[in-house]
Write a protein that binds this DNA or RNA. Structure first.
Lengths: 239, 239
DNA sequence: TGACTTCTATGCGGACTACATATATGTTAG
DNA sequence: CTAACATATATGTAGTCCGCATAGAAGTCA
């Protein structure tokens, strides 16, 4: 039984080399007809000039969830948003410098709550596959392709797949909207995530029947046509 | 920017303490009307006498998937089965000895392919919640409750939740059956995973319409009633 | 040979969705 | 002030899928 030796290694870090442990966070938004993700420009080797997700090493005295929230706050200035663990990436050569295993998280936020600082970009995610097939995705800023560091493109690809999967049975779209919204706003979010158009009437009926929406009594103003009713989420929808 | 300091820590393990990284594997089977999971009795402090999942530390030169497969082979004698990453558990105090972050995997296997050695048990998983609510699960061996080490009960609870979720849109049940099976065998697997009975006719129609089943032309033998047709999985079902 | 058990096939009603049509309610142009 | 316009909202209809019920088929066993 090698358990004993393994535990010595765990107690004494100098005994056996162990992987470093990091978190990377994909901060995702839906805007202008596309999913978008916050990327940071790398200034150092390796992948200098490429773009990466906000990330950082896990400290010895914080949980993974805490590390992800800390990284999101420190490198994207965002806190208090929906954030969830996605998957852990552990290929041996995913970081050319040293062995780094990364626990990937994704966060969802209303684009109005974001401010983009220097050296950051809210890249458009281009998804060349439909449904939940999976596959690579591409990144654009101002219409030009971005080069992505490490395996971070694969992380974002998995986020898209996860979002599409969750949308079939969970009210994930609300996290990408402000507190109050119209049914069409919500439909637009669903269409952006799924990458396909949705039948308007079915969508309305489904959403209103779900019990997750509560009318505020208010309506849109100054929209040049009949104003839509404004809704917010019920407690059950938020759970 | 503290990246520089963090990277020094990554390069020089003695600079900053870093979490240990382990994998734990829940080897799951369906038998005798219940989901079951392989547990190993602990012989040492902490949790001496309690039961745990097969697990081990991730080596510096192997990927997470490789580590999980190695652990499953070394501690359960099983290889070549379905295995998939589940979730990464990283609460600070989940191991009282030292900080250990664990990437949990789950594996599915036909019970006939298992041999249970000394100090192991194929525990029955008792699930006191329905649907995909989630919540705690309990473990029984020979009708008596087992005490579970670390957070491994929570890991298995998440496996059950994941299986129920996957079953709605994926042919996960095949992994728990031998190569050839009847429709009722498959239905029994689904019922065990979901924890509720399924309408027989709807299930038949749904499965046959899915295109994932191919009749072998053979039938059951010596069953005391009309024998059921024997099926195997098509290529699309296996993907 | 006939009773018995389970498999297999078919029919029917309800629930849900996609698509089509009709009506309501605001803005804007003349 | 009124009519054109645009979109929201409501209603209707056909197709699909699921659950339930019924009936026939194909084995074993007394």
């Amino acid at each position: 039984m090698s358990d004993e030796r393994d535990f010595l290694a765990a107690y004494d870090p100098s005994e056996f080399p162990r992987p470093s442990l990091a978190v990377d966070v994909a901060l995702v938004t839906a805007d202008a007809g596309s999913l978008r993700v916050l990327l940071i420009e790398r200034m150092e080797h390796p992948y200098s000039g490429d773009w990466q997700l906000p990330g950082g090493f896990v400290r010895i005295d914080e949980s993974l969830d805490e590390a992800a929230a800390r990284v999101l706050e420190a490198k994207a200035g965002v806190s208090g948003v929906f954030i969830e663990q996605l998957y852990t990436f552990g290929e041996v050569d995913r970081d050319p410098r040293t062995r780094v295993v990364s626990v990937a998280y994704y966060a969802l936020v209303d684009p109005d709550r974001l401010t983009i600082e220097d050296g950051r970009v809210l890249a458009t995610i281009s998804v060349p596959w439909s449904g939940e097939e999976g596959g690579p995705v591409h990144f654009l800023a101002d219409g030009r392709p971005l080069s992505i560091a490490f395996d971070h493109a694969a992380i974002v690809a998995m986020v898209v797949k996860r979002l599409r999967g969750k949308l079939r049975y969970t009210p994930v779209g609300y996290e990408l909207l402000p507190d109050e919204f119209t049914l069409f706003d919500l439909q637009r979010i669903h269409e952006i995530i799924l990458g396909e158009s949705i039948n308007k009437d079915s969508f309305r009926r489904r959403m209103l029947a779900s019990g997750e929406l509560a009318p505020t009594g208010r309506r849109q103003e100054g929209v040049g046509h009949r104003p839509a009713a404004v809704y917010r989420i019920t407690a059950t929808g938020r759970g």
